[in-house]
């Protein structure tokens, strides 16, 4: 059964007919074509589907679309503006924080939530914030360095 879902996605209010059993992940990827959010393990174990809901990281594969009605959802597509990478995206690019790229959207969104709350996190805080996100390429060190670099770039700016 479909019902009207009113929701903010990347700063824009939308009203769409969405099935009761649609996950937030299904709605974003299949309904809106926002395929930056990845479907990884499909069971809440890998963090590839991490998006922000009212600024907090949330697993889109373990969230029903209707359960976040009226709230503000942000996906990786919202980070760049006017074709320019965000500070965090640029840091991942420059510090080799991404290899195959599959985990990157989830890593970016989890790190984005961290940096908004804690603009100058130490390594322990970065590790804790990314603890639920798996990467099978980088070995994590480059990812942590990328988040650190983004935080330092923010302070310099």
């Amino acid at each position: 059964m479909k019902n009207i879902l009113g929701i903010w996605v990347n700063g824009r209010w939308r009203e769409d007919a969405v099935a009761d059993n649609a996950l937030l992940l299904d709605y974003l990827r299949d309904g809106l074509g926002l395929t930056g959010t990845k479907q990884g393990c499909d069971g809440g174990e890998c963090g590839a589907c991490t998006v922000l809901v009212d600024g907090e990281p949330r697993l889109a594969c373990s969230t029903l679309a209707h359960s976040v009605a009226g709230r503000r959802v942000e996906t990786v597509e919202s980070l760049a503006s006017d074709g320019n990478l965000s500070r965090l995206q640029r840091a991942f690019h420059e510090h080799l924080g991404t290899q195959c790229g599959f985990c990157t959207p989830g890593m970016l969104m989890a790190a984005e939530a961290l940096l908004r709350k804690n603009p100058k996190p130490d390594r322990a805080a970065i590790r804790a914030a990314l603890a639920g996100n798996l990467c099978r390429c980088t070995g994590y060190v480059k990812i942590i360095e990328s988040v650190e670099a983004a935080a330092n770039a923010g302070v310099a700016a």
């Binding site: 990281p57 949330r58 373990s62 969230t63 989890a110 639920g132």
Partner: peptide
């Protein structure tokens, strides 16, 4: 319990 993103929900 689980990871930070799970605990928020």
């Amino acid at each position: 319990v689980a990871g930070p993103t799970h605990r928020a929900a």
